[in-house]
Design a protein around this nucleic acid. Structure first.
Length: 572
DNA sequence: GCCGTTTTCGGCCCGACTGTTTTCAGTCG
């Protein structure tokens, strides 16, 4: 069982314990333990195997969780979890996922009304029996009915890129409100998470009601979920929630800090403040003794008040940022203009929509200095993958085109070569040897066992012609889980052989994720951020990859394709 | 359940909003 599997067990345990009315702090301890393991940049199995180290040295892991982790590693299951699963009906969990209902209300509903399915719940709301329950009422019953239909529409997190489009659209709409003096997006969108659950807008307005009215007039608004003096929540489209909070100008920084999160980051900042006799809320930083305000207007002030430098939003997950901030070692994160090359793109030779020339021109327009043409290899039949003959034909075309781009753009003869199901590469070594740039990637046999798929990828890493592993885990956000690959072993092998790892910037992939990126950085593995463009416009996804790289704490130095072509060549 | 230059017990971030209450519990972020 790997880190994320163990973390998932503790998360489920925490969720189930809530239904038992357990001590909330015990529940939180399980959640924090899960987070500690999920955020780890090495495998817990490794720590357990090392006689010089103890799991309980990890912050958030005590004796109990360490023991349970060992049981999970040895047996793959936890008796306590099996028992709880038996005690808590599945429907209770489904009920608690409905907005506005939590563990307590779900338990009451399930017990008092013997709800066996969401359909039962709908009927109980309609026939009035829910409204009669103590602590419930007609409004609650109505909101459950609303919630049920939202749940049916499968409100899932949206890609960061889609959140970005929506934020820009709403932002433009809000520009039309004269009352707004200041406006900024917060939340997971600002932190650049790969997916976004909702959007949080923060404003300073002369007239708060006017600002809220204006948000309600957004054409795509389908519903207002709630509206108070300082906060309004609306639904956009079918199910997506947008929150807006109104604050005073002298609170803007603390409000922005607070609403940007993450929750774990905020809990930590508040604890640090408390140790210093201060209290942080969205309204500012205050002395606990006399309630006097010491900061609040800017985020810089808020962090400075507790003795820390400003922390970039992408790092605010309570992973390494506090330790680095205390030591003054926060990384200078990479920015989009740092990128000089793009080393993964397709053309009309396989499943791309543009020619070599068109891709090259588009790359120049975007300020790039070098690109690699990396079409699919023969195994990818659906995309008309290239066999040696067609590949060499394409390289001949590149030779013909190159003189036109002399001094403007270097075009590499590349290939995205498949790693075969049986192991080994889809093209013979002598062909790969002729390439300037070889990506290796898995497209078939994605559901193989951990051992098989890890062996395949490590085999590719050890091939001397392979320069970089593309989309190393194969995940598609919201759609397909990563391969069962042992990323520790893969990164170790890459570090040993000097093979680079791709951060695929496609907003549905963002593969590697930020945890793996941080681990790769630690091992000194050069990261290549690539667009995997299938048409000229596809080159624009680079900025999504940059967001992700920032979350992994990467600087320009960590990313190979920020180098000049001359410097980059030395890595090959 | 975790944690500790106010330690091995007694804390654990902090506030808005809603609906149901008449002082508060539950939920959310």
């Amino acid at each position: 069982m790997d880190n994320s599997g163990i973390a998932a067990v503790f998360e489920e345990l925490a969720e189930l314990l809530e239904f038992k009315g357990e001590n909330p702090f015990r529940i939180r301890a399980y959640k924090q333990g899960a987070k500690a393991i999920r955020d780890l940049d090495e495998s817990v199995a490794e720590i357990v195997a090392d006689p010089d180290r103890k799991l309980s040295d990890l912050s958030g892991i005590g004796k109990t969780l360490a023991d349970k982790t060992k049981v999970l590693l040895e047996t793959g299951e936890l008796p306590q979890l099996e028992k709880l699963r038996g005690e808590i009906p599945e429907v209770m969990i489904q009920i608690s996922r409905i907005p506005g209902l939590g563990a307590k209300k779900a338990a009451t509903l399930q017990k008092e009304l013997e709800i066996g399915s969401l359909d039962d719940l709908r009927k109980a709301c309609e026939d009035g029996s829910v409204a009669k329950l103590k602590g419930f009422g007609k409004k609650t019953a109505d909101s459950i009915l609303d919630g049920l239909s939202i749940a049916e529409q499968a409100a899932e997190r949206i890609y960061w890129s889609a959140g970005d489009d929506l934020a820009r659209s709403i932002g433009e709409h809000m520009q039309g409100c004269d009352s707004i003096e200041k406006m900024e997006w917060a939340g997971s969108y600002r932190r650049g998470r790969d997916t976004i659950g909702d959007l949080d807008l923060l404003v300073v307005a002369k007239d708060r009601d006017a600002a809220m009215d204006h948000l309600e007039s957004y054409p795509e608004r389908s519903q207002t979920i709630g509206r108070g003096d300082t906060k309004i929540s609306i639904r956009v489209g079918k199910a997506f929630q947008v929150d807006m909070r109104c604050v005073d100008a002298n609170q803007f920084g603390s409000a922005l800090q607070y609403f940007t999160g993450s929750q774990a980051h905020n809990i930590r900042t508040r604890r640090i403040a408390k140790e210093q006799g201060l209290k942080i809320s969205e309204y500012g930083v205050f002395n606990i003794d006399d309630e006097s305000q010491v900061a609040g207007e800017t985020e810089q002030d808020v962090y400075a008040a507790i003795g820390l430098p400003w922390i970039p939003p992408e790092l605010r997950e309570d992973r390494m940022e506090f330790k680095l901030a205390e030591k003054g070692q926060l990384p200078e994160l990479i920015e989009t203009p740092d990128v000089r090359g793009d080393l993964h793109m397709h053309t009309t030779a396989t499943d791309g929509q543009n020619t070599i020339r068109e891709m090259a021109d588009a790359a120049i327009e975007r300020g790039l200095k070098y690109i690699a043409i990396t079409d699919h290899s023969q195994r990818v039949t659906m995309a008309m993958g290239l066999d040696p003959e067609r590949l060499r034909e394409q390289w001949k075309q590149i030779d013909e085109v190159r003189p036109e781009y002399e001094g403007k753009l270097v075009i590499l003869k590349g290939i995205e070569c498949d790693i075969l199901e049986s192991g080994g590469m889809d093209l013979p070594d002598d062909v790969l040897a002729e390439a300037d740039w070889v990506l290796a990637s898995v497209h078939y046999g994605q559901r193989q066992s951990r051992e098989q798929i890890t062996d395949r990828i490590i085999g590719a890493i050890k091939n001397e012609h392979v320069d970089c592993i593309a989309h190393p885990t194969g995940r598609l956000l919201n759609r397909r889980p990563p391969y069962e690959v042992d990323m520790d072993a893969v990164l170790q092998a890459a570090a040993e052989s000097g093979t680079m790892m791709e951060l695929n910037a496609n907003p549905a992939r963002l593969d590697l994720n930020e945890i793996h990126l941080a681990a790769a950085k630690k091992l000194g593995i050069p990261i290549v951020i690539s667009t995997d463009a299938h048409q000229t416009a596809g080159l624009d996804v680079m900025r999504y990859g940059i967001k992700q790289a920032r979350r992994g704490g990467l600087t320009k130095v960590d990313v190979a394709n920020t180098k000049t072509w001359k410097q980059f060549q030395k890595l090959l």
